[in-house]
């Protein structure tokens, strides 16, 4: 290509491949995303997104939980996966755990105390419960996340 014997492959052809290819793949991507959009309600069990779940997601976001944990495998890798924590530990454990932080064990990773009230803890658990029911193609491979 770059060499002198380009065999007639010109800059204009390269440019056309770039523009044409890009437009084609943008349209194809948009089409698949459009199809995916319509599958999301069923796959995510969207009917179960209660006001509690919505509030719980906001708690999750405004405490920057993603800065240490992963959720469905995305986030930071400093603390356990929480997409399936409801299945692994149960709601009561999650609440008790949050209230017991930080452990203060010397040298161990510490989780901040977020001073959530009972309602907020409940909302957060509802969010994590809903998340654990999302169809994730059977990920994670085992309960440890």
């Amino acid at each position: 290509m770059g060499a002198g014997n380009t065999g007639g492959f010109t800059k204009q052809m390269a440019r056309n491949i770039f523009y044409g290819g890009t437009v084609f793949f943008i349209l194809l991507f948009a089409a698949i995303v459009f199809h995916t959009e319509r599958q999301i309600p069923a796959r995510s069990n969207a009917a179960a997104i209660t006001p509690e779940v919505v509030r719980g997601k906001k708690i999750w976001e405004t405490r920057n939980c993603i800065g240490c944990h992963t959720l469905l495998g995305e986030g930071a890798y400093f603390a356990p996966e929480l997409g399936n924590v409801y299945t692994r530990r149960g709601g009561d454990f999650i609440k008790a755990w949050m209230q017991a932080q930080p452990t203060g064990a010397p040298g161990r990773r510490q989780m901040p105390q977020f001073h959530l009230d009972e309602q907020q803890l409940h909302d957060l658990v509802e969010f994590l419960k809903w998340t654990s029911q999302v169809n994730t193609e059977k990920w994670p491979p085992n309960i440890e996340g």
């Binding site: 890009t22 194809l28 991507f29 698949i32 995916t36 495998g73 995305e74 990920w139």
Partner: peptide, 16 residues
């Protein structure tokens, strides 16, 4: 562009 799909495996999006 379609490579975006490698982030869509396990976050609740369709299996394709």
């Amino acid at each position: 562009i379609l490579g975006t799909g490698h982030h869509f495996y396990f976050i609740g999006l369709p299996g394709y």
